[in-house]
């Protein structure tokens, strides 16, 4: 058991013993050895919690399940959640969008050395400069400080695609969206996607058909990317959960790059700054 795991467990145990929270959301190992989200309700169960680079989802998504009172007269549950630095930005996002209250959430921040998908370090993690979450109540630290990679994110992959012709890009996305089965795993895994009724499923107004052709899939993915413009925290959970391995993070990274270049905004730095599409500057004239 690593030092990180021990700290996560003891934080969880303490929260549950003191009655600070009713559930701790972390990771456990399933019977076949796969890492998966775990919900710990009893202090004794805290031993189930694990930490490893395979923990690549964004558990902040689950906070949406705990943001309402379950019954009249029962208070909103208090929850503790284990987060990586990118997930922690989603906590700030939800705080800013008034989805959760700070006093109802305990954040167990983990000093992150990058997460893996299928045994390989995620591409975003190889250039991530962030080791400590922007928001936490307990910081889980390793014995040795984690090194920050020298390479900074230059959005090289996005820039390369931007050098293609529109036809080539359409062909690329048509090929990728071709596999999409519209299972909406990307949407469900995303902490920023919490509409009561998604545009993709709305009947009135009827935005898009339920058909499974390129125009419908294009609409869904572009719509989702646009709704996350300036809101995406770059956790890549959408891409990780996709059963068809569609490189959805490319869409989000492209928008993150533009948002940074145009508005100098980085999602989730703090819960106060207005996101770029919720504000404006009267002087600016953007290329249209």
């Amino acid at each position: 058991m690593s030092a990180l795991e021990e700290q996560i467990r003891s934080a969880a145990r303490q929260y549950l013993e003191n009655g600070d929270v009713s559930v701790v959301i972390g990771y456990e190992r399933g019977p076949k050895g796969k890492v998966r989200p775990a919900f710990v309700h009893q202090a004794d169960d805290a031993e189930r919690l694990v930490w490893s680079p395979e923990c690549n989802l964004n558990l902040v998504t689950y906070l949406h399940n705990y943001k309402h009172s379950p019954r009249r007269g029962v208070p909103v549950p208090r929850v503790a959640v284990v987060v990586r630095p990118c997930d922690a930005r989603a906590v700030n996002l939800l705080l800013h969008e008034q989805q959760i209250k700070r006093e109802n959430v305990k954040v167990i921040g983990v000093t992150c050395a990058g997460s893996e998908v299928d045994g390989e370090l995620r591409q975003a993690c190889t250039v991530c400069q962030e080791r400590v979450p922007v928001i936490y109540d307990v910081l889980v630290e390793p014995e040795q400080p984690v090194e920050v990679p020298e390479a900074q994110d230059d959005y090289g992959d996005v820039a390369e695609m931007e050098s293609w012709t529109p036809g080539e890009r359409l062909e690329y996305w048509a090929k990728e969206f071709d596999r999409c089965i519209r299972c909406y795993a990307c949407r469900q895994a995303c902490p920023g996607c919490y509409c009561f009724e998604c545009v993709a499923e709305q009947v009135f107004p009827h935005w898009t058909s339920i058909a499974l052709e390129l125009p419908e899939k294009y609409f869904f993915h572009v719509m989702r990317a646009f709704h996350l413009a300036g809101r995406c925290v770059g956790c890549d959970a959408c891409e990780v959960v996709c059963p068809m391995d569609i490189p959805l993070s490319k869409l989000n990274r492209m928008l993150a790059k533009e948002v940074e270049a145009l508005f100098g905004y980085h999602t989730g730095d703090d819960p106060e700054t207005l996101p770029p599409l919720a504000t404006f500057s009267p002087e600016e004239r953007l290329r249209l």
């Binding site: 989200p37 998504t61 689950y62 089965i181 299972c183 795993a185 339920i210 959960v241």
Partner: peptide, 27 residues
Amino acid sequence: QVTERCLGCRACTFVCPTCRCFDVRDE
């Protein structure tokens, strides 16, 4: 305990060879 971590996506039913529920719309 089993269902707490379910994200509510539709992947399991769409890959299933027996799941047969459908939605109908006039367009």
